[in-house]
Design a protein around this nucleic acid. Structure first.
Length: 171
DNA sequence: TGCACGATCTCG
DNA sequence: GAGATCGTGCAT
């Protein structure tokens, strides 16, 4: 299978998030070895209007990459020790992203970042051209369920309860 | 220049 | 149920 094309990333995060389920996340380590994972859980963050999305605070040092065209890597440190891996979607100036919550049976955004050895150096890298992390196409899987997003109670009722967490039933 | 807090996890 | 641990955003 080949890398997902730019067009795949240009749609809304809520549209792309379920389509990422079952896709292959490829990671090339420093020693040249390669690991391939099946994306098993995602979460969508839909731009400036979405109070749960970091971009709702506007364009800042941290959110800058979300304003770029889809296909970029958005990583940030949370709780001082976990690197969250996100996929930027949408067109330029449509600050949306999808949090990768699970790969294979490794479920939990913090665990995913640790497994993939993510760090600040990945910020802004492109899934279209990177030689150490990218996503390959795979048959679309429709056997998934939805649930509210995690850890965003502060976003208020309207956004807190959106069923924008997508979980593969099996992989 | 300082400070409170967070898209989390693990251990007890 | 609490601690680990630190960059970011906003107040001072």
């Amino acid at each position: 299978m080949s890398r997902l094309s730019l067009e795949f990333y240009l749609n809304d995060a809520v549209t792309v998030a379920p389509k990422l389920l079952g896709k292959t996340l490829v990671r090339v380590w420093d020693d040249g070895t390669i690991s391939r994972y099946c994306i098993s859980e995602t979460e969508a963050y839909l731009g400036e209007i979405d109070k749960a999305c970091h971009a709702s605070k506007g364009r800042t040092t941290r959110t800058e990459v979300m304003f770029a065209e889809g296909g970029c890597v958005y990583v940030y440190l949370i709780y001082g020790m976990y690197w969250m891996l996100n996929v930027v979607t949408g067109h330029e100036n449509e600050p949306q992203a999808i949090l990768i919550r699970g790969i294979n049976n490794i479920v939990g955004s913090g665990k995913v970042g640790r497994e993939l050895k993510m760090d600040k150096s990945f910020y802004g890298e492109s899934f279209l051209t990177s030689n150490r992390i990218w996503i390959e196409d795979a048959p679309e899987i429709l056997d998934f369920k939805t649930a509210p997003r995690v850890g965003i109670d502060y976003a208020g009722e309207e956004w807190r309860d959106k069923p924008w967490r997508f979980i593969l039933n099996r992989y």
